[in-house]
Structures are given as structure tokens and as C-alpha cells.
Amino acid sequence: MKLTARNSAKGYFFISGWIIGFLIFTLIPIIRTFWFSFNRVRFTADGIKESFIGLLNYKNAFLMDVAFTDGLINYAGQMAVFIPVIITFSLIAAILLTKDIKGKGFFRTIFFLPVIITSGPVMKQLIEQNATSLPGISEYFSVQELANEFGLLGNLLGTVLSSFIMILWFCGVQILIFIAAIQKLDQSMYEAASIDGASGWQSFWKLTLPALMPVVGVNVLYTLVTLSGFSLNTIVQKISTDMYDINRGIGYATALSVIYFGVILIILTVFMVFINGRRKKAER
């Protein structure tokens, strides 16, 4: 066997376990989901009956279902605000947590702690109990007033304020990824910069940030995915209720999820184009 062939055989060997599991329980179901979205699907006594109806499900989603289109617009707006806030906050936190502070390990632990909370039943309870908004904020300003005064910007600001704590809770893994990346940066680079007279502020913008740009990309993707797939997300909830709805059914619900997937992809592309633009500018 040639060397390259042997190498790739080894590669396939290491990845084989994952490929099998992924194919059976993720990829094939996803492909099936795409197919379902063009059908009317009914459960009958002798199995599942599919009848091809073309793009009707998609047409209904956009033209008949007000809750869905509204939800999508809302969701896109939320992402446009949440992702930059989460990325900025975790970057700041990561930089501080790599500085030499007493009790660094303790703070790192605490900042990672919410990762174990933001899943499943616990989070649901917290949201139901209204524990995710800053206590007091809602008494001083209402989101509505802000929206009236500053238009769209105020509306977004209101969203951030009202779910501020929740945004912080989604930062754990991102902070961790940033910390890992910052610790790998070459310290002698900073030394050289400071000998040349660069201030801490300058070396952040000229050294740290450009070097971290690829990691920012990773974090944007991770944030987007966790926020979008989060089981308490309104669209995810709508999809799961429509799936068992007699009038709408699984064909319609899968069409919704395909559209949702498309929207997530578009949002990701927008962020990635922005990040690549920054990176190119930094390289120049």
C-alpha cells in the first residue's frame, strides 16, 4: 500500500466510530426531514403515508402562519444583539481572567458554572420564576417606553436589559475557549510591543484582537448554535408543538425547521463575512 493510502486508511479508521453514529442518528434523519418538508405526512394504522405536495408547506409557512414569520424576525433581531454582547463580554472576562489576579482559579470556576445550569429543567424553572431579568430594572424603565423613545435601538437595548442575566449565563464555554487561546499567545510579542512604546490598549487592538479573530469565529458559531437549539427558544417550541398538531403535522413542522435552518445559516454567514473583513483589515 502506498504511504498516502495508508495514512488516509488510518484517518478513516479513527473517524469510523463517529461516522457510523453520525450517519444513523443525525445525518440520515436530517435528510429524511428535508424530504418530509415537501410532503404531507400522515400516520395511519399501516405506517406512515407521505404524499408529495411540493412547496405548499413552505408557502403556508410564509403566507398563512403569522406567528412563525414574526417569530423569525424577532429571533434574527435577538441574535443580532445577543451574539455581539456575549462575545464582547466573554472576551473581556477572558482577558481579565488571564491577568495575574489573586483568586483567579476561583473566578474562572464561577464564570464557567452557569454552563451546567443553562440546560433543561432548571433553566425553565428560572425563566418561569422571572429570575432571568435584572431585579429592579423593569420597575425603572419599561421596554415599551425605551422603544417609543429611541425606536429600534431602544427596543434592542430593552431586550438586552431584560434578559441580561441570561445572556451572561451563556458565556461559560466561550470564556473558556478565549482563555485557552489567550494563553497560547506569544508573550514575547507583547514584550517587544511594550519596548517599542505601545500601551496596553494599543497592544490589545493591534496584537490580541487580530490573533484572536479565528477564535472569535469559533465562538460566534458556538453561541449561535446554543442559542438557536436551546429548547426554550420560541421557534423551537413552535416547531415541536406543530409537529403533533393535527392540522399542521410533521410535514409542516419539518418545513419550518428547514426554513429556520436557512435563517441560522444566513445569520452565520453575515457574522463570518464581518469577521473575515476584520481579519483582512488587520493583516494589511
Partner: peptide
Amino acid sequence: KKFGLRNFIFKVNTFALMFVPIAVSI
């Protein structure tokens, strides 16, 4: 490791990440 489908597999994985898990349950 370098093998033919490497980039493709990673891309597929990334796309799968973005798919709503509930939708594939049936």
C-alpha cells in the same frame, strides 16, 4: 490526518450543528 473526505465531513458536522434537534426526532 489527511484523507479525501476530511473537509467535507467537518463541514457536514458544522451544518448538522445548526439543525434543530427536535425536528429530526420522528
